[in-house]
Amino acid sequence: MLEKLLREDRVILDMQATTKEEALRELLKPLQFDPSKEDIILDALLKRESIGSTGIGKGIAIPHTRSLVLDQVYLVVGRSKKGVDFDALDKKPVYLFFLLLAPPQDPGTVYLITLGKIAHLSRKLARTREYLEIDDPKAFVDYLLKLLKEE
């Protein structure tokens, strides 16, 4: 499922955000929701962040939420070369983001399974930080797919 969600047009390799809210807004942009919908999703993401950061440490964050206004599961991958203060668990800047959004109900609990897979993938990514060196969206997706296949 994660493989199907990874799309070149939903990869941002030069994030400009410097704050948590800016980062979330920037990650929502490729999905081109209308403004009222985007505000509702951003609000839900910020509420989730308010109870504990989804910055899991080692430079990676997995912001996520469900919302009634979503019709399917969406994934956006973002990278910031300068890093974002995301209030991560280890208090260090976040360089890589996986934004996962889902509708209220999804068959087969795709959302939770995908969250688990992203967390697993993040542990692999944190080992080498090669993701900081790739500057082409297609190559970036291919790199993530390669890591996903490695066991």
């Binding site: 839900a44 509420k47 109870i51 950061s53 989804t54 469900r66 919302s67 009634l68 967390a119």
Partner: peptide, 27 residues
């Protein structure tokens, strides 16, 4: 109402063992 629904769902999901197993920070 949508914001309330999303918040109620978040609060419910935080209690689910499947979500808790993922190990995200919840204060």
């Amino acid at each position: 109402l949508i914001a309330l629904h999303d918040l109620d769902q978040l609060l419910k999901e935080l209690e689910s063992p499947e979500y808790q197993e993922l190990g995200f920070e919840v204060k």
